[in-house]
Design a protein around this nucleic acid. Sequence first.
DNA 1: ACAAAAGTGTTGCACTTACACCCATGA
DNA 2: TCATGGGTGTAAGTGCAACACTTTTGT
Lengths: 238, 238
Amino acid sequence: MPDVTTALPVADHEVLAAVLQVRAGSLQVLLWERAQEPHAHRWSLPGGRLGATEDVESSIRRQLEEKVDVRQLSHVEQLAVFSAPERVPGERVVASAFLGLVPSDVDPALPPDTAWHPVDALPRTAFDHESIVRRARDRLRAKLSYTNLGFALAPPTFTISALRSLYSAALGYKVSATNLQRVLSRRGLLEPTGDTAPPGKAGGRPAALFRFTQRGIEVTDPFAVLRPPNQARGGAAT
Amino acid sequence: MPDVTTALPVADHEVLAAVLQVRAGSLQVLLWERAQEPHAHRWSLPGGRLGATEDVESSIRRQLEEKVDVRQLSHVEQLAVFSAPERVPGERVVASAFLGLVPSDVDPALPPDTAWHPVDALPRTAFDHESIVRRARDRLRAKLSYTNLGFALAPPTFTISALRSLYSAALGYKVSATNLQRVLSRRGLLEPTGDTAPPGKAGGRPAALFRFTQRGIEVTDPFAVLRPPNQARGGAAT
DNA sequence: ACAAAAGTGTTGCACTTACACCCATGA
DNA sequence: TCATGGGTGTAAGTGCAACACTTTTGT
């Protein structure tokens, strides 16, 4: 076998984040436009080199500070390592990719070279960043179904129809407000604040305001099938 | 903010794998006993340094060759990056962790310092390897429920009761052979070979042999809830 | 014939979607 | 009082767990 271990260290390490937010009815990702070669004028994920005294999650939070205030990030999680030797030109760089989420009610001030782009209509992207965005989008879509991750897309309080818009935009298909409310309520994830939102100009019943009962991520629907016997949910109790 | 980016490169990169197999009715992981400091006599996951010309998956497959023939690995996937600065003593090392699976019918020849250990009764482990094993176990358990990953634990052909034992051992709770067969058959994952296995000494009806229809991993149960409207599975068709 | 093990039929329950209907407000 | 949008009741469909029963072999 060829000796592939001779040149040590073999790689620098960078961290990258696909920061997603529902904006103007579509799921968008934060990108910045490269001014310099390589891949000048292409759009790139925010991030940078891993520092000596930080782990990858601390690092991505630190690096995002200049784009988005960390307090505005409602959720951050690892996606995967991207490590193809030629993934970037020049010195080899291994990347740890992250998914970040921002609630729909915040609109961070951005540096001039930075902008939001719909994930389903990306501009020309640098390196392998398009596949990272796809991974982030797919991860979000999956977790919206079996966890409470919706809290990370929503403002502190919201109407059911506003929440429906967020889920529809993130998932890419229409969601029924009726069923969304029932699913989330049955799981105990939603509670009414007692307040109502003012109706629109055309009138109509004022919508009740809700909040998520928990702000941290939690798996709410752990087993699709093959559940343990005699558990509370699922199964027939004779 | 403190400058954490001065010392470059900040880390070497290693790859580690939790290789799991159902053996003797329990889910076990492949570990080797460290002879030297640090952490001498503790048990460690197989792996090693990332080479200059390989990506992390190629690397872990290469490194595992000396423990388990790569052809015997039925599935390999990334788990996560472990990057705490002090996770190993001395020079900093960032680790990419993998889950590997071996079918229950193979029994690889092992180096003398290497052995299988039940994941729920681990010996004293080195560094952060115990949490990597836990992550691997949890990932396997989750994916057994919503993908066809069972194929990676099973021999090419098997009886339903043998498959039931594998699922029970991996999941950690009893699974009904009746319902397991129905769930997998309904999804089109199982097909009869036409042959039967000889009955035991006490007699009994001979068991039919089955095989998985696909050998690659595939998500079979993608949405727990919030399915797209008017899809084939789930929902009420009027 | 009897015991043992494998596989099938049937029933009941839980969950979800779809759709109709009722409720609250502004003009 | 009428239009508009929010919220609830109800029925239908699907999938899974439990358990009884049938089938097929060895002794």
